[in-house]
Write a protein that binds this DNA or RNA. Structure first.
Length: 430
RNA sequence: GUGGCUAUAGCUCAGUUGGUUAGAGCGCUGGUUUGUGGCACCAGAGGCCGUGGGUUCAAGUCCCAUUAGCCACCCCA
């Protein structure tokens, strides 16, 4: 609007939005830790090859969505468009193979040069988990279960649908891909413009086309099931059985594909109707070929990523801001004592604001404006008596409390009055 | 990258067929005298009408471009 705009597709996280993000991240970190995923952080930029060599030369992410630049030293750098490649790189460079299986959780900004929409920014944020070094289908189940637990903790699981598919092992996938190319190539005249492109880049995507003419063709297209070899079928069955035994509902979606090349076997998405065209809330799958493709030893892996913005838009149980208590000193001696009193109460883990400036009324209004729950009014005469007037700003009740009790005893008094029975912050130090 | 819609105060929006000093609500600041807030009342500040061109005696209003947002496609989290 004004001359000073944020860069297209970026935005500021002001306290209210930041709290929603924090809630998503903290919830996910806590839940996934129960599954053994420990938080890690990798750089927000990597050498460009980390992404270009792994994501696939034909993927949209590589061909048109990367923020890449050359440094003064001549290095080719790219802001990470996703974090699986970065984690995989860290796995290799830190020699984590000896600790396999490695389970990690991450949260942070990702960058994609896309046309912004609601729920789609150029700098956005993702949480995700990766389980590297476990080839068993039980690992897929565990990863998906962790995702379910996160969604449940955020109170949005009921709004999502788990869509599940298998991409098979590379042999199955290649065979199917070839069959699809053969089939659609024979009907090029009926394919949409987009799908002609897809035929070159990612034929599997044609199956998911929204074009009516494409859809007609898709009806008679080869079915992936016919090309899955026994191992791939058994693997997929084991994943489904695991989910069944956990009572995790899913819908098989044979058209569910991945834009990134390193996926194989299991792929899944949690989708919702509540976010318009940006319906994917959490997505992931197995990527057994990735580490090897990057130059490491052959190492299987499985994981998912979820957009924090999208999760935050769905979650409506974001905690309220912690209400402060406000100290209102009146008089020179009280002003001085208030400084130390504030420090003492803060040291106990409470949010304390000072109301300086203005007369009593001004300061009370200030207390009100910052949504304080408690006002500690301390004039020179109270100070002389060694007390302070403690006022509950919701009920209007107030009473004199000896200063020494105030510091040591504020906890119970303040919490009870300030938050009532519910809405109690679990730990005010957080 | 393609197509459509939108752009007026911090926020949500009015601004008639182009016509004087561009409005409201909320919010913000100050006040309604003494050390007690919320409510009410009074007053005030705050707008290159997204930006740049053009048409016209005259443009917030019409035209073009540009930027940004929104929506759909593509793709994705």
């Amino acid at each position: 609007m004004a001359v000073l705009q944020p860069v297209r597709g970026t935005y500021d996280l002001l306290p209210e939005a930041m709290r929603a993000h924090r809630h998503v991240v903290d919830t996910a970190a806590g839940v996934t830790l129960c599954y053994g995923f420990e938080e890690v952080a990798t750089p927000v930029f990597e050498f460009t090859e980390v992404f270009s060599r792994t994501l696939g030369d034909t993927s949209d992410v590589v061909t048109k969505e990367m923020y890449s630049f050359e440094t003064q030293g001549g290095d080719h750098i790219t802001l990470r468009p996703e974090n699986t490649a970065g984690v995989a790189r860290a796995f290799i460079t830190n020699g984590l193979a000896q600790h396999a299986p490695v389970k990690c959780f991450y949260a942070g900004p990702m960058f994609r040069y896309e046309k912004p929409q609601k729920g789609r920014q150029r700098q956005f944020h993702q949480i995700g988990v990766e389980l590297i070094g476990a080839a068993q289908p039980q690992a897929d189940v565990e990863v998906i279960a962790a995702g379910v637990a996160v969604l449940k903790s955020l109170g949005i699981y009921e709004e999502t649908t788990l869509e599940l598919n298998t991409l098979g092992d590379p042999a199955s996938r290649t065979a199917y891909r070839d069959a699809l190319v053969a089939y659609f190539s024979a009907h090029k005249d009926k394919l949409s413009e987009d799908s002609l492109m897809r035929l070159e880049k990612n034929p599997l995507r044609i199956l998911d086309s929204k074009d009516p003419s494409d859809r007609e063709l898709v009806k008679d297209a080869p079915v992936f099931g016919d090309f899955l070899n026994e191992e791939s079928k058994a693997f997929f069955k084991a994943v489904k059985d695991g989910l069944d035994s956990l009572g995790i509902a899913y819908e098989l979606n044979p058209r569910l594909v991945r834009g990134l090349d390193y996926y194989n076997h299991t792929c899944f998405e949690f989708t919702t109707q509540a976010l318009g065209a940006q319906g994917t809330v959490m997505a992931g799958g197995r990527y057994d070929g990735l580490i090897e493709q990057m130059g490491g030893q052959p190492t299987p892996g499985v994981g998912w990523a979820a957009g924090i913005e999208r999760l935050a838009m769905l979650a409506n149980d974001t905690p309220e801001a912690v209400r402060p208590m406000v100290i209102i000193p009146l008089g020179d001696a009280a002003e001085i004592r208030a400084l130390t009193l504030a420090e003492e109460i803060r040291a106990e883990g409470y949010r304390v604001e000072m109301a300086y400036g203005g007369n009593m009324k001004k300061r009370m209004k200030h207390a009100n404006k910052i949504d304080a729950g408690i006002a500690i009014i301390m004039g020179d005469d109270e100070l002389a008596k060694g007390v302070a007037m403690v006022k509950d700003l919701d009920s209007g009740e107030q009473e004199e409390v000896p200063l020494e009790q105030l510091v040591g005893g504020i906890t119970a008094w303040e919490l009870a009055e300030m938050y009532g029975e519910d809405g109690l912050p679990s730990d005010p130090q957080d």
